[in-house]
Design a protein around this nucleic acid. Structure first.
Lengths: 205, 205
DNA sequence: TCACATAATTAGTTAGCACTAACTAATTTG
DNA sequence: CAAATTAGTTAGTGCTAACTAATTATGTGA
Protein backbone atom coordinates (compact mmCIF):
# COMPACT_ATOMS: atom_id res chain seq x y z
CA UNK A 1 0.00 0.00 0.00
CA UNK A 2 2.46 2.62 1.14
CA UNK A 3 5.65 2.62 -0.92
CA UNK A 4 9.04 4.37 -0.86
CA UNK A 5 9.09 7.54 -2.92
CA UNK A 6 11.54 6.53 -5.68
CA UNK A 7 9.55 3.43 -6.53
CA UNK A 8 6.30 5.41 -6.49
CA UNK A 9 7.82 8.00 -8.78
CA UNK A 10 8.75 5.33 -11.30
CA UNK A 11 5.25 3.89 -11.09
CA UNK A 12 3.74 7.31 -11.76
CA UNK A 13 6.00 7.99 -14.74
CA UNK A 14 5.06 4.59 -16.15
CA UNK A 15 1.38 5.37 -15.76
CA UNK A 16 1.83 8.68 -17.55
CA UNK A 17 3.49 6.92 -20.50
CA UNK A 18 0.57 4.51 -20.66
CA UNK A 19 -2.12 7.14 -20.42
CA UNK A 20 -0.41 9.53 -22.84
CA UNK A 21 -0.33 6.80 -25.47
CA UNK A 22 -4.02 6.07 -25.07
CA UNK A 23 -5.71 9.41 -24.65
CA UNK A 24 -3.03 11.89 -25.59
CA UNK A 25 -0.75 13.89 -23.36
CA UNK A 26 -2.61 17.19 -23.40
CA UNK A 27 -5.84 16.26 -21.72
CA UNK A 28 -3.98 14.02 -19.30
CA UNK A 29 -5.16 14.93 -15.82
CA UNK A 30 -3.50 14.41 -12.49
CA UNK A 31 -6.68 12.62 -11.42
CA UNK A 32 -6.30 10.07 -14.21
CA UNK A 33 -2.69 9.50 -13.21
CA UNK A 34 -3.70 9.05 -9.60
CA UNK A 35 -6.41 6.55 -10.53
CA UNK A 36 -3.92 4.58 -12.61
CA UNK A 37 -1.60 4.07 -9.65
CA UNK A 38 -4.43 3.71 -7.11
CA UNK A 39 -3.77 6.87 -5.19
CA UNK A 40 -5.67 10.03 -4.49
CA UNK A 41 -4.96 13.01 -6.68
CA UNK A 42 -3.07 15.15 -4.14
CA UNK A 43 -0.72 12.25 -3.45
CA UNK A 44 0.80 12.82 -6.91
CA UNK A 45 1.70 16.34 -5.88
CA UNK A 46 3.77 14.96 -3.04
CA UNK A 47 6.08 13.36 -5.58
CA UNK A 48 5.88 16.05 -8.28
CA UNK A 49 5.28 19.58 -6.99
CA UNK A 50 3.73 20.67 -10.29
CA UNK A 51 2.56 19.02 -13.46
CA UNK A 52 5.50 20.33 -15.48
CA UNK A 53 7.88 18.51 -13.13
CA UNK A 54 6.05 15.32 -13.99
CA UNK A 55 6.55 16.03 -17.69
CA UNK A 56 10.21 16.74 -17.03
CA UNK A 57 10.70 13.35 -15.43
CA UNK A 58 8.81 11.63 -18.25
CA UNK A 59 11.06 13.30 -20.81
CA UNK A 60 14.14 12.27 -18.86
CA UNK A 61 12.95 8.69 -18.83
CA UNK A 62 12.27 8.68 -22.57
CA UNK A 63 15.65 10.25 -23.31
CA UNK A 64 17.33 7.54 -21.29
CA UNK A 65 15.51 4.74 -23.12
CA UNK A 66 16.29 6.26 -26.46
CA UNK A 67 20.00 6.84 -25.98
CA UNK A 68 20.31 3.36 -24.49
CA UNK A 69 18.56 1.91 -27.53
CA UNK A 70 20.98 3.70 -29.84
CA UNK A 71 24.03 2.72 -27.82
CA UNK A 72 22.96 -0.90 -28.07
CA UNK A 73 23.16 -0.66 -31.84
CA UNK A 74 26.25 1.52 -32.10
CA UNK A 75 28.32 -0.56 -29.69
CA UNK A 76 27.26 -3.80 -31.34
CA UNK A 77 28.93 -5.68 -34.17
CA UNK A 78 28.73 -4.85 -37.84
CA UNK A 79 29.97 -2.24 -40.26
CA UNK A 80 28.55 1.24 -40.68
CA UNK A 81 26.12 0.01 -43.35
CA UNK A 82 24.55 -2.58 -41.10
CA UNK A 83 24.55 -0.24 -38.16
CA UNK A 84 22.75 2.46 -40.10
CA UNK A 85 19.91 0.17 -41.04
CA UNK A 86 19.82 -1.30 -37.55
CA UNK A 87 19.73 2.14 -35.98
CA UNK A 88 16.73 3.23 -38.01
CA UNK A 89 15.03 -0.08 -37.39
CA UNK A 90 15.64 0.13 -33.68
CA UNK A 91 14.33 3.67 -33.53
CA UNK A 92 11.14 2.77 -35.38
CA UNK A 93 10.63 -0.27 -33.18
CA UNK A 94 11.06 1.88 -30.11
CA UNK A 95 8.52 4.42 -31.39
CA UNK A 96 6.15 1.61 -32.21
CA UNK A 97 6.46 -0.04 -28.82
CA UNK A 98 6.04 3.25 -26.97
CA UNK A 99 3.40 5.28 -28.73
CA UNK A 100 3.54 7.81 -25.94
CA UNK A 101 6.76 9.20 -27.38
CA UNK A 102 5.15 10.28 -30.63
CA UNK A 103 2.09 11.53 -28.82
CA UNK A 104 4.32 13.75 -26.72
CA UNK A 105 6.33 14.98 -29.71
CA UNK A 106 3.11 16.04 -31.38
CA UNK A 107 1.63 17.42 -28.18
CA UNK A 108 0.59 20.95 -27.46
CA UNK A 109 2.52 20.66 -24.24
CA UNK A 110 5.73 20.25 -26.23
CA UNK A 111 4.91 22.36 -29.25
CA UNK A 112 3.70 25.44 -27.42
CA UNK A 113 3.64 25.22 -23.68
CA UNK A 114 6.77 23.62 -22.36
CA UNK A 115 10.02 24.97 -23.79
CA UNK A 116 12.06 22.63 -21.61
CA UNK A 117 10.33 19.61 -23.08
CA UNK A 118 10.84 20.95 -26.58
CA UNK A 119 14.55 21.42 -26.03
CA UNK A 120 14.95 17.86 -24.75
CA UNK A 121 13.23 16.30 -27.74
CA UNK A 122 14.96 18.54 -30.24
CA UNK A 123 18.24 17.55 -28.64
CA UNK A 124 17.36 13.87 -29.00
CA UNK A 125 16.53 14.37 -32.65
CA UNK A 126 19.85 16.07 -33.26
CA UNK A 127 21.67 13.26 -31.45
CA UNK A 128 19.95 10.76 -33.72
CA UNK A 129 20.94 12.90 -36.69
CA UNK A 130 24.52 12.98 -35.46
CA UNK A 131 24.71 9.19 -35.24
CA UNK A 132 23.32 8.83 -38.76
CA UNK A 133 25.71 11.42 -40.09
CA UNK A 134 28.65 9.67 -38.49
CA UNK A 135 27.69 6.32 -39.96
CA UNK A 136 27.14 7.83 -43.39
CA UNK A 137 30.55 9.47 -43.27
CA UNK A 138 32.29 6.33 -42.02
CA UNK A 139 30.85 3.80 -44.38
CA UNK A 140 31.70 5.09 -47.80
CA UNK A 141 29.38 2.57 -49.39
CA UNK A 142 26.41 4.08 -47.57
CA UNK A 143 26.45 7.18 -49.69
CA UNK A 144 28.15 7.98 -52.93
CA UNK A 145 30.77 10.69 -53.20
CA UNK A 146 29.36 14.16 -53.46
CA UNK A 147 26.51 13.55 -51.07
CA UNK A 148 26.66 15.78 -48.01
CA UNK A 149 26.33 13.45 -44.99
CA UNK A 150 24.55 16.19 -43.05
CA UNK A 151 21.80 16.52 -45.64
CA UNK A 152 21.64 12.79 -46.23
CA UNK A 153 21.17 12.27 -42.51
CA UNK A 154 18.40 14.87 -42.50
CA UNK A 155 16.67 12.93 -45.27
CA UNK A 156 16.74 9.82 -43.13
CA UNK A 157 15.54 11.70 -40.05
CA UNK A 158 12.70 13.09 -42.14
CA UNK A 159 11.92 9.59 -43.37
CA UNK A 160 11.55 8.39 -39.80
CA UNK A 161 9.54 11.37 -38.63
CA UNK A 162 7.35 11.69 -41.69
CA UNK A 163 6.58 8.00 -41.62
CA UNK A 164 5.77 8.27 -37.94
CA UNK A 165 3.38 11.14 -38.59
CA UNK A 166 1.59 9.14 -41.28
CA UNK A 167 1.42 6.21 -38.88
CA UNK A 168 -0.25 8.47 -36.35
CA UNK A 169 -2.66 10.00 -38.85
CA UNK A 170 -3.78 6.59 -40.05
CA UNK A 171 -4.45 5.51 -36.49
CA UNK A 172 -1.38 3.27 -36.24
CA UNK A 173 -2.81 0.75 -38.67
CA UNK A 174 0.37 -0.44 -40.40
CA UNK A 175 3.67 -1.76 -39.11
CA UNK A 176 5.98 1.17 -38.54
CA UNK A 177 9.17 -0.89 -38.54
CA UNK A 178 8.08 -2.95 -41.55
CA UNK A 179 7.15 0.02 -43.72
CA UNK A 180 10.29 1.78 -42.55
CA UNK A 181 12.61 -1.03 -43.61
CA UNK A 182 11.23 -0.94 -47.14
CA UNK A 183 11.43 2.82 -47.50
CA UNK A 184 14.90 2.97 -45.96
CA UNK A 185 16.20 0.46 -48.44
CA UNK A 186 14.85 2.55 -51.29
CA UNK A 187 16.33 5.66 -49.74
CA UNK A 188 19.75 4.15 -49.22
CA UNK A 189 19.80 2.72 -52.71
CA UNK A 190 19.34 6.27 -53.95
CA UNK A 191 21.96 7.79 -51.69
CA UNK A 192 24.40 5.09 -52.61
CA UNK A 193 23.80 5.03 -56.33
CA UNK A 194 26.47 6.49 -58.62
CA UNK A 195 25.68 10.16 -59.21
CA UNK A 196 22.35 10.44 -60.93
CA UNK A 197 21.20 13.50 -62.82
CA UNK A 198 18.95 15.70 -60.80
CA UNK A 199 16.49 16.53 -63.53
CA UNK A 200 14.01 18.28 -61.35
CA UNK A 201 16.03 21.22 -60.24
CA UNK A 202 16.14 24.74 -61.53
CA UNK A 203 12.64 25.57 -62.59
CA UNK A 204 11.23 25.25 -59.12
CA UNK A 205 9.40 28.52 -58.57
CA UNK B 1 -20.08 47.01 -35.96
CA UNK B 2 -22.79 44.57 -36.87
CA UNK B 3 -21.96 42.46 -39.91
CA UNK B 4 -23.70 39.88 -42.12
CA UNK B 5 -23.19 36.33 -40.93
CA UNK B 6 -21.13 34.93 -43.82
CA UNK B 7 -18.59 37.70 -43.53
CA UNK B 8 -18.43 37.31 -39.75
CA UNK B 9 -17.94 33.58 -40.15
CA UNK B 10 -14.97 34.17 -42.43
CA UNK B 11 -13.54 36.65 -39.95
CA UNK B 12 -13.86 34.14 -37.15
CA UNK B 13 -12.20 31.37 -39.14
CA UNK B 14 -9.37 33.76 -39.97
CA UNK B 15 -8.94 34.63 -36.34
CA UNK B 16 -8.78 30.95 -35.42
CA UNK B 17 -6.03 30.38 -37.98
CA UNK B 18 -4.09 33.29 -36.50
CA UNK B 19 -4.52 32.22 -32.91
CA UNK B 20 -3.82 28.56 -33.61
CA UNK B 21 -0.50 29.50 -35.18
CA UNK B 22 0.51 31.59 -32.19
CA UNK B 23 -0.68 29.71 -29.14
CA UNK B 24 -1.58 26.32 -30.51
CA UNK B 25 -4.97 24.92 -31.37
CA UNK B 26 -5.62 22.91 -28.25
CA UNK B 27 -5.81 25.58 -25.62
CA UNK B 28 -7.61 27.88 -28.01
CA UNK B 29 -10.66 29.20 -26.20
CA UNK B 30 -13.85 30.63 -27.57
CA UNK B 31 -13.13 33.69 -25.44
CA UNK B 32 -9.82 34.30 -27.22
CA UNK B 33 -11.55 33.95 -30.59
CA UNK B 34 -14.23 36.41 -29.51
CA UNK B 35 -11.63 38.91 -28.33
CA UNK B 36 -9.78 38.64 -31.63
CA UNK B 37 -12.86 39.64 -33.64
CA UNK B 38 -14.09 42.13 -31.03
CA UNK B 39 -17.19 40.30 -30.01
CA UNK B 40 -18.48 38.79 -26.82
CA UNK B 41 -17.93 35.10 -26.34
CA UNK B 42 -21.54 33.93 -26.76
CA UNK B 43 -21.73 35.72 -30.11
CA UNK B 44 -19.38 33.08 -31.53
CA UNK B 45 -21.93 30.42 -30.66
CA UNK B 46 -24.50 32.18 -32.83
CA UNK B 47 -22.29 31.43 -35.85
CA UNK B 48 -20.97 28.03 -34.77
CA UNK B 49 -23.30 25.99 -32.53
CA UNK B 50 -20.39 24.11 -30.98
CA UNK B 51 -16.62 24.31 -31.00
CA UNK B 52 -16.24 21.27 -33.21
CA UNK B 53 -18.27 23.00 -35.90
CA UNK B 54 -15.75 25.81 -35.82
CA UNK B 55 -12.93 23.30 -36.30
CA UNK B 56 -14.86 21.73 -39.16
CA UNK B 57 -15.09 25.04 -40.96
CA UNK B 58 -11.40 25.75 -40.34
CA UNK B 59 -10.47 22.39 -41.82
CA UNK B 60 -12.69 23.03 -44.83
CA UNK B 61 -10.98 26.34 -45.41
CA UNK B 62 -7.51 24.82 -45.19
CA UNK B 63 -8.46 21.98 -47.52
CA UNK B 64 -9.70 24.49 -50.05
CA UNK B 65 -6.50 26.54 -49.93
CA UNK B 66 -4.37 23.45 -50.23
CA UNK B 67 -6.11 21.86 -53.19
CA UNK B 68 -6.20 25.23 -54.92
CA UNK B 69 -2.46 25.61 -54.33
CA UNK B 70 -1.83 22.19 -55.88
CA UNK B 71 -4.14 22.79 -58.82
CA UNK B 72 -2.24 25.99 -59.57
CA UNK B 73 0.92 23.97 -60.01
CA UNK B 74 -0.57 20.95 -61.76
CA UNK B 75 -2.52 22.99 -64.32
CA UNK B 76 0.45 25.22 -65.05
CA UNK B 77 3.13 24.80 -67.63
CA UNK B 78 6.14 22.48 -67.46
CA UNK B 79 6.91 18.80 -67.59
CA UNK B 80 6.40 16.32 -64.76
CA UNK B 81 9.92 16.96 -63.47
CA UNK B 82 9.37 20.68 -63.07
CA UNK B 83 5.89 20.17 -61.68
CA UNK B 84 7.12 17.75 -59.05
CA UNK B 85 9.66 20.21 -57.71
CA UNK B 86 7.16 23.05 -57.95
CA UNK B 87 4.51 21.05 -56.11
CA UNK B 88 6.78 20.33 -53.17
CA UNK B 89 7.99 23.92 -53.15
CA UNK B 90 4.45 25.25 -53.22
CA UNK B 91 3.38 22.96 -50.41
CA UNK B 92 6.29 23.99 -48.20
CA UNK B 93 5.65 27.65 -48.93
CA UNK B 94 2.01 27.20 -48.00
CA UNK B 95 2.94 25.48 -44.74
CA UNK B 96 5.42 28.26 -44.02
CA UNK B 97 2.94 31.04 -44.71
CA UNK B 98 0.19 29.41 -42.63
CA UNK B 99 1.80 27.91 -39.55
CA UNK B 100 -1.65 27.10 -38.21
CA UNK B 101 -1.85 24.15 -40.56
CA UNK B 102 1.08 22.36 -38.97
CA UNK B 103 -0.07 23.31 -35.51
CA UNK B 104 -3.41 21.67 -36.25
CA UNK B 105 -1.83 18.57 -37.79
CA UNK B 106 0.21 18.09 -34.62
CA UNK B 107 -2.67 18.99 -32.34
CA UNK B 108 -4.35 16.85 -29.76
CA UNK B 109 -7.65 17.94 -31.25
CA UNK B 110 -6.70 16.18 -34.48
CA UNK B 111 -4.59 13.34 -33.10
CA UNK B 112 -6.99 12.15 -30.44
CA UNK B 113 -10.19 14.10 -30.10
CA UNK B 114 -11.69 14.91 -33.46
CA UNK B 115 -11.93 11.96 -35.84
CA UNK B 116 -13.56 14.11 -38.50
CA UNK B 117 -10.61 16.49 -38.52
CA UNK B 118 -8.20 13.58 -38.70
CA UNK B 119 -9.95 12.12 -41.71
CA UNK B 120 -9.85 15.42 -43.55
CA UNK B 121 -6.12 15.91 -43.03
CA UNK B 122 -5.27 12.30 -43.78
CA UNK B 123 -7.28 12.65 -46.98
CA UNK B 124 -5.31 15.75 -47.92
CA UNK B 125 -2.04 13.95 -47.31
CA UNK B 126 -3.13 11.08 -49.53
CA UNK B 127 -4.19 13.52 -52.26
CA UNK B 128 -0.76 15.08 -52.12
CA UNK B 129 0.76 11.62 -52.29
CA UNK B 130 -1.41 10.83 -55.30
CA UNK B 131 -0.23 13.88 -57.18
CA UNK B 132 3.41 13.05 -56.46
CA UNK B 133 2.90 9.46 -57.52
CA UNK B 134 1.29 10.54 -60.78
CA UNK B 135 4.13 12.90 -61.60
CA UNK B 136 6.73 10.28 -60.74
CA UNK B 137 5.01 7.76 -62.99
CA UNK B 138 4.58 10.23 -65.86
CA UNK B 139 8.02 11.70 -65.95
CA UNK B 140 10.31 8.77 -66.48
CA UNK B 141 13.36 10.89 -65.74
CA UNK B 142 12.07 11.61 -62.22
CA UNK B 143 12.75 8.11 -61.01
CA UNK B 144 14.78 5.31 -62.47
CA UNK B 145 13.21 2.09 -63.60
CA UNK B 146 12.51 -0.36 -60.81
CA UNK B 147 11.50 2.29 -58.31
CA UNK B 148 7.92 1.90 -57.13
CA UNK B 149 6.25 5.30 -57.60
CA UNK B 150 4.05 4.66 -54.57
CA UNK B 151 7.02 4.19 -52.27
CA UNK B 152 8.97 6.99 -53.92
CA UNK B 153 6.05 9.32 -53.36
CA UNK B 154 5.90 8.25 -49.71
CA UNK B 155 9.57 9.17 -49.38
CA UNK B 156 8.82 12.65 -50.65
CA UNK B 157 5.77 13.00 -48.41
CA UNK B 158 7.94 11.97 -45.48
CA UNK B 159 10.55 14.51 -46.53
CA UNK B 160 7.95 17.27 -46.40
CA UNK B 161 6.41 16.14 -43.13
CA UNK B 162 9.64 15.28 -41.36
CA UNK B 163 11.16 18.58 -42.38
CA UNK B 164 8.06 20.36 -41.17
CA UNK B 165 8.28 18.63 -37.82
CA UNK B 166 11.91 19.64 -37.45
CA UNK B 167 10.94 23.18 -38.40
CA UNK B 168 8.36 23.15 -35.62
CA UNK B 169 10.72 21.65 -33.06
CA UNK B 170 13.38 24.28 -33.78
CA UNK B 171 10.80 27.01 -33.30
CA UNK B 172 10.50 27.79 -37.02
CA UNK B 173 14.00 29.23 -37.17
CA UNK B 174 15.04 28.23 -40.69
CA UNK B 175 13.43 28.67 -44.09
CA UNK B 176 11.16 25.71 -44.72
CA UNK B 177 11.00 26.20 -48.49
CA UNK B 178 14.72 26.85 -48.76
CA UNK B 179 15.82 23.82 -46.81
CA UNK B 180 13.20 21.79 -48.65
CA UNK B 181 14.50 22.70 -52.07
CA UNK B 182 17.97 21.49 -51.19
CA UNK B 183 16.81 18.23 -49.64
CA UNK B 184 14.38 17.54 -52.46
CA UNK B 185 17.12 17.86 -55.01
CA UNK B 186 19.21 15.34 -53.11
CA UNK B 187 16.18 13.07 -52.79
CA UNK B 188 15.35 13.21 -56.48
CA UNK B 189 18.95 12.68 -57.49
CA UNK B 190 18.80 9.45 -55.50
CA UNK B 191 15.52 8.29 -56.96
CA UNK B 192 16.69 9.11 -60.44
CA UNK B 193 20.16 7.64 -60.18
CA UNK B 194 20.91 4.44 -62.11
CA UNK B 195 20.26 1.48 -59.83
CA UNK B 196 22.67 1.62 -56.91
CA UNK B 197 23.50 -1.28 -54.65
CA UNK B 198 21.54 -1.25 -51.47
CA UNK B 199 24.39 -2.19 -49.19
CA UNK B 200 22.61 -1.63 -45.95
CA UNK B 201 19.88 -4.21 -46.15
CA UNK B 202 19.69 -7.65 -44.72
CA UNK B 203 21.26 -7.47 -41.33
CA UNK B 204 18.72 -5.04 -39.95
CA UNK B 205 17.43 -6.68 -36.79
C1' DT C 1 8.17 1.01 22.57
C1' DC C 2 8.18 5.46 21.55
C1' DA C 3 9.40 9.39 18.92
C1' DC C 4 10.17 10.88 14.25
C1' DA C 5 10.04 11.24 9.39
C1' DT C 6 7.17 10.68 5.52
C1' DA C 7 3.53 8.62 2.51
C1' DA C 8 -1.07 9.38 1.83
C1' DT C 9 -5.86 11.21 2.81
C1' DT C 10 -9.95 14.45 3.31
C1' DA C 11 -11.76 18.52 2.24
C1' DG C 12 -11.37 22.34 0.26
C1' DT C 13 -10.08 26.79 -3.11
C1' DT C 14 -9.57 29.16 -7.30
C1' DA C 15 -9.81 29.67 -12.01
C1' DG C 16 -11.07 28.79 -16.61
C1' DC C 17 -13.75 26.37 -19.79
C1' DA C 18 -17.92 25.32 -23.16
C1' DC C 19 -22.29 26.39 -23.45
C1' DT C 20 -27.35 28.50 -22.42
C1' DA C 21 -31.35 31.71 -21.48
C1' DA C 22 -33.26 35.87 -21.83
C1' DC C 23 -33.13 40.10 -23.63
C1' DT C 24 -31.77 44.26 -26.89
C1' DA C 25 -30.52 46.71 -30.90
C1' DA C 26 -29.80 46.93 -35.74
C1' DT C 27 -31.16 45.68 -40.41
C1' DT C 28 -34.25 44.18 -43.89
C1' DT C 29 -38.80 43.77 -45.94
C1' DG C 30 -43.84 44.14 -46.85
C1' DC D 1 -43.20 53.14 -41.18
C1' DA D 2 -44.31 48.84 -38.79
C1' DA D 3 -43.21 43.97 -38.44
C1' DA D 4 -40.23 40.38 -38.72
C1' DT D 5 -35.64 38.74 -38.83
C1' DT D 6 -31.14 38.44 -37.25
C1' DA D 7 -26.63 39.95 -34.91
C1' DG D 8 -25.34 40.92 -30.71
C1' DT D 9 -25.27 41.53 -25.37
C1' DT D 10 -25.54 40.53 -20.15
C1' DA D 11 -25.67 37.35 -16.78
C1' DG D 12 -25.27 32.92 -15.32
C1' DT D 13 -24.71 27.41 -15.03
C1' DG D 14 -22.24 23.39 -14.44
C1' DC D 15 -18.15 21.22 -14.91
C1' DT D 16 -13.33 20.11 -14.58
C1' DA D 17 -8.78 21.31 -13.95
C1' DA D 18 -4.42 22.24 -11.00
C1' DC D 19 -3.10 22.97 -6.73
C1' DT D 20 -3.22 23.68 -1.14
C1' DA D 21 -3.92 23.13 4.11
C1' DA D 22 -4.65 20.38 7.69
C1' DT D 23 -4.71 15.93 9.24
C1' DT D 24 -4.04 10.81 9.62
C1' DA D 25 -1.80 6.61 9.06
C1' DT D 26 2.57 3.89 8.35
C1' DG D 27 6.90 2.36 8.62
C1' DT D 28 11.81 3.00 11.02
C1' DG D 29 15.67 3.73 14.11
C1' DA D 30 17.16 4.78 19.08
Amino acid sequence: MRKPAPQRKREIVGAVLDLAAKGGPDRLTMQAVADAVDLTQPAIFRHFPAKKDLWGEVARSIAEDMTQCWQGVLCGAGGPEEKLAALVSAQLSLLESRPAILAIVFSHELQFENAHLRRIFHGLMMQFHGHLQGLLADGRSCARAGVDPVDAAFLIVALVQGLALRWSLTGRTFSLAGEGRRLLELQLAGLNAPAGRSTCEGTAR
